[in-house]
């Protein structure tokens, strides 16, 4: 086979464009710190509850007799859901595996199998983790509602609002997922009924497609907000701060 020409490392084009290594470095730092924080919760914290506020890392509290560390009971499904997420996969492959670190930047690794072999082939199970993530989301909505009930009466605290925003962002992230977009209608061949009107699946697919454009944004914001929510509740638990009650 004839020879290909050597390529150059791409130079940044626009004055406001960041160097190529900024995005993967941010990914490694952000996901690395989040991972370390999660490990600390799993092995060193047994609870995340302050009165009617429950940390998303510890919901649901009911384990139905299954003996496992509380945080592990909850965390495996959202973590696997995120780890197999199409958006995070892009960031993880770029940041942690340099496959590639950025477009047109040469790779140093010689062997590459993509997602054809274990463990990366298991990313195809993403939809299964989505199913479980939806169940966890139901519990988080119940927790968010309970965050507005103080001693049997309706009330609003700063924590209530934080938990509501948190579950809202997680809902946006979960239902803007590529796998859900496929399941809700993307797998269909036809989007029209025999009388020419749009199918219900088409309407949903169209809606989810619009949400899906922001999936990456929801991925980061929801992750940071889960983190923030846990920190807020943990500071309340340790008496470092006091919750602001609006009424």
């Amino acid at each position: 086979m004839a020879q290909t020409a050597e390529s150059l490392q791409p130079t940044k084009r626009k004055s406001h464009a960041l160097p190529y290594w900024v995005e993967p470095t941010f990914t490694v730092v952000a996901l690395g710190l989040f991972g370390l924080y999660t490990l600390w919760l799993v092995f060193f914290q047994s609870s995340g509850q302050f009165h009617n506020y429950l940390s998303p890392f510890f919901s649901p509290t009911e384990s139905w007799g299954i003996k496992v560390l509380p945080a592990i009971w909850v965390l495996w499904s959202p973590l696997l859901f995120r780890a197999t997420c199409y958006y995070y996969r892009k960031e993880i492959y770029r940041g942690f595996f340099h496959d590639p670190v950025s477009c047109a930047v040469p790779e140093s690794r010689k062997y590459y199998f993509g997602e054809t072999r274990f463990p990366f082939s298991w990313t195809n199970l993403h939809r299964w983790f989505w199913y479980v993530a939806v169940i966890v989301l139901v519990f988080l909505w119940i927790d968010a509602v309970q965050a507005f009930i103080f001693n049997g009466h309706f009330g609003i605290g700063l924590g209530s609002i934080i938990m509501l925003i948190n579950v809202g962002l997680l809902t946006a992230y979960t239902f803007s997922c590529h796998a859900f977009r496929h399941l809700i209608g993307g797998g269909s061949q036809k989007f029209s009924c025999s009388d020419g009107r749009p199918t219900t699946r088409y309407k949903w697919w169209n809606r989810v497609s619009a949400w899906n454009e922001h999936h990456g944004t929801y991925a980061w914001i929801s992750m940071f907000f889960v983190w923030f929510t846990d920190v807020y509740i943990r500071l309340l638990m340790n008496g470092v701060i006091h919750d602001v009650r609006f009424f």
């Binding site: 996969r89 892009k90 496959d99 590639p100 047109a104 199998f113 993509g114 082939s121």
Partner: peptide
């Protein structure tokens, strides 16, 4: 399966 969706 060889594509790892890095979107370049």
């Amino acid at each position: 399966g060889m594509c790892n969706i890095t979107k370049c």
